[in-house]
């Protein structure tokens, strides 16, 4: 974790020269303003911020992207260009918030913690299955994370672009996809073994790095107040991702009622997701060629589940067996 220290002084002329190295002439700002980093609201597009002695040219605020809808901008998360290397970075200022998380009918305490993300960034250095970055202090002494931008598509973008026919998808793409998913579960097991939770496991927090071809977990600044089971919520997230990839997308009760009412009629209350009752977990009832063993894993996350996974290790063991049973 570095400290904010200005090692080198840059003149305005130096900064312009550096900006021109990385930006096309038409995008070079007319004025360059070096901004104090203590307040992210005061840092705007085309501003320069100095972090750990390195100048960064600030671009747009990042937005929460989910289910194809763009939410409000996250003013504390800004894209920027490292003017020494030209690398694109994501700057995440400290923005602590405590809130009551809600999943289905359940409510629990959550926090957005820069400290947690900084801790995990430190732990996962060098691992290809997580986003990378370093942590410095802003001019107010708060933690500011400088994250390497990952070029690539999110898991749902990739899955939805695969063939629309599920049987073809399941035969041609699913075995590889399941192997890739297993690698991402291995990554979460690594975190759990270190005593850390991801905290916000969602399908769109997996990006397939176009350089390495590997999926990488992003955004681990959330923490939830666990009770008897420290990693239960993370495991639930993994189950949701597994059901999503196995269905080649969400199989919802609403969609079935429109497109396959006869299949909907064959479902019982036990066949849906244990929390999200509009999503089908018992996918074998929709796609009968899904192997029994694989479907049994999905059923651990169904409303009718009698047993739950207690650890990522248990889930991994079953996933690997299921993968070995698939052709290809």
């Amino acid at each position: 974790m570095g400290h904010h220290t200005s090692v080198k002084k840059y003149t305005e002329e130096d900064l312009f020269r550096m900006v021109r190295l990385w930006l096309p002439e038409e995008n070079v700002p007319k004025r360059l303003r070096v901004k104090d980093t203590s307040d992210f609201f005061r840092v705007d597009y085309d501003d320069i911020v100095m972090l750990g002695g390195t100048p960064y040219l600030v671009r747009n605020n990042e937005r929460e992207r989910r289910f194809g809808v763009e939410d409000e901008p996250k003013f504390w998360v800004k894209r920027a260009v490292n003017l020494v290397t030209g690398r694109v970075k994501i700057l995440k200022w400290t923005f602590r918030e405590k809130f009551r998380g809600r999943v289905g009918n359940l409510v629990f305490d959550c926090v957005r913690s820069p400290l947690k993300e900084a801790r995990i960034l430190n732990i996962v250095q060098g691992r290809p299955d997580f986003m990378h970055g370093e942590t410095v202090q802003d001019s107010a002494g708060h933690l500011l994370r400088i994250i390497d931008y990952i070029q690539g598509k999110t898991l749902p973008e990739i899955v939805r672009a695969m063939t629309p026919n599920h049987e073809d998808f399941f035969r041609d793409h699913y075995p590889g996809l399941l192997s890739e998913f297993i690698s991402t579960v291995e990554a979460i097991r690594f975190l759990h073994d270190k005593g850390e939770k991801h905290g916000d496991i969602r399908r769109d927090h997996l990006i397939r790095d176009s350089e390495t071809g590997r999926y990488r977990w992003i955004d681990f600044d959330y923490n939830y107040r666990h009770r008897a089971s420290k990693f239960g919520y993370d495991l639930f997230g993994l189950g949701n991702v597994l059901i999503f990839i196995t269905g080649g997308g969400d199989i919802t009760v609403q969609a079935l009622s429109m497109e396959a009412p006869e299949k909907l009629a064959g479902l019982s209350g036990e066949d849906v997701n244990i929390i999200f009752h509009n999503r089908v977990a018992n996918l074998k009832k929709i796609y009968p060629y899904i192997p029994e063993f694989l479907n049994r894993i999905l059923m651990h996350f169904a409303a009718g589940a009698k047993v739950y996974y207690e650890s990522t290790g248990e889930l991994l063991e079953d996933l690997k067996k299921a993968r070995d049973m698939l052709p290809g």
Binding site: L106, F108, S229, G232, Y233, F236, I275, A303, Y308
Partner: peptide
């Protein structure tokens, strides 16, 4: 059931 599933 869902609470027990998530939080043990």
């Amino acid at each position: 059931k869902s609470e027990e599933f998530l939080f043990g």
